[in-house]
């Protein structure tokens, strides 16, 4: 598994908010070690009589040894929350918040790119390692099974769809990572593929892309050059009209590279097996592993 495991100690930024509280509870129920919450002004209290709340990330990390952060802070304050987590020395940050201005994301990335931190998201479902019962995100935990397939995706519910199909096909997952649907994200396909490449628990990878940008082509170049395990890829949005934003801020065709057929072509040429239809993710992976 990658990024999160049994040693992951999670601090939830925005734990006293409605969404933060709801999901913190579900993560705990799944088995995640939620060791702290941070809400400025609410330090010194206990959330749900269980989890200590701190005013600052620095305090939370110092007092609890948290090494992973899950962010639910509203968009206007989310950049601040991410940077606070980075400067507190957090190693893995999952930012669920949707609607961060793209120029904020650009600055955040520029600041953290040379630091020892992985930012997953923003605008993502988070990540989960079923084998360690560690869920750092908003995905429904019960569809996952421990296993050897890595999943990396720009989507939320489509990732759940992929996972459910894998589980049904008898294929458990090592780690599933939703990198997020914004045009600029902290982590791209390539970053996650590099980790899966080195991960002895991961036998094969499902990659789920969509229209817009060129992240799938970058993934294709990396797969061709260095990736040693079977990759099964699905790219959605082949029928989307150019210039129209399909929900995700990043899912908009603005140039040739943004089109689904270009991405599929690049991934196929790199040796990935293309999922013929969204309903066939699980069976395609099963076939790819047999070869």
């Amino acid at each position: 598994m990658i990024l999160v495991n049994e040693n992951t100690r999670v601090v939830v930024q925005g734990i006293t908010g409605r969404e933060g509280g709801f999901h913190a509870e579900r993560c705990m129920a799944y088995g995640t070690q939620i060791v702290a919450g941070v809400t400025p002004g609410r330090g010194g209290t206990l959330w749900q009589d269980k989890v200590p709340v701190f005013d600052t990330m620095e305090q939370a990390v110092r007092e609890t040894g948290a090494n992973c952060s899950l962010i639910f802070v509203p968009a206007p304050f989310a950049t601040d929350a991410i940077l606070e987590a980075v400067d507190a020395g957090i190693g893995v940050i999952a930012c669920i918040t949707e609607g961060i201005p793209v120029q904020e994301s650009v600055k955040v990335y520029s600041y953290l790119k040379d630091k020892r931190v992985h930012l997953i998201g923003p605008n993502c479902p988070g990540l989960i390692s079923p084998g360690a019962r560690c869920k750092v995100g908003i995905m429904p935990g019960d569809i996952h099974r421990p296993g050897t397939i890595g999943v990396v995706s720009r989507s939320g519910t489509l990732t759940y769809e992929a996972v459910a199909q894998l589980t049904e096909a008898g294929l458990g997952q090592s780690t599933c990572v939703g990198i997020g649907g914004d045009p600029v994200t902290g982590t791209d396909f390539v970053d996650i593929l590099k980790l899966f490449n080195k991960d002895p628990d991961t036998e094969g990878v499902v990659l789920i892309g969509e229209i817009g940008g060129a992240k799938e082509q970058e993934a294709a170049r990396y797969i061709k050059r260095s990736f040693k395990k079977p990759v099964v890829a699905l790219v959605v949005g082949a029928t989307a009209p150019p210039g129209k934003r399909m929900g995700h801020a990043g899912a908009i065709i603005t140039g040739v590279s943004g089109r689904a057929e270009e991405k599929i072509r690049a991934l196929r040429e790199a040796g990935a097996t293309i999922v013929p239809s969204p309903g066939e993710i699980g069976v395609t992976m099963k076939r790819a592993l047999r070869r």
Binding site: S155, G181, M246
Partner: peptide, 29 residues
């Protein structure tokens, strides 16, 4: 709600942008 008008006759309603795009592809299939 994210809604984009297209030209066909199959209305669709999905939760999640990625799954919604996948659903369009399924309808086309």
């Amino acid at each position: 709600i994210s809604y984009v008008k297209l030209d066909g006759d199959v209305g669709c309603m999905v939760n999640g942008a990625g799954l919604a795009m996948a659903t369009l592809d399924v309808i086309n299939a």
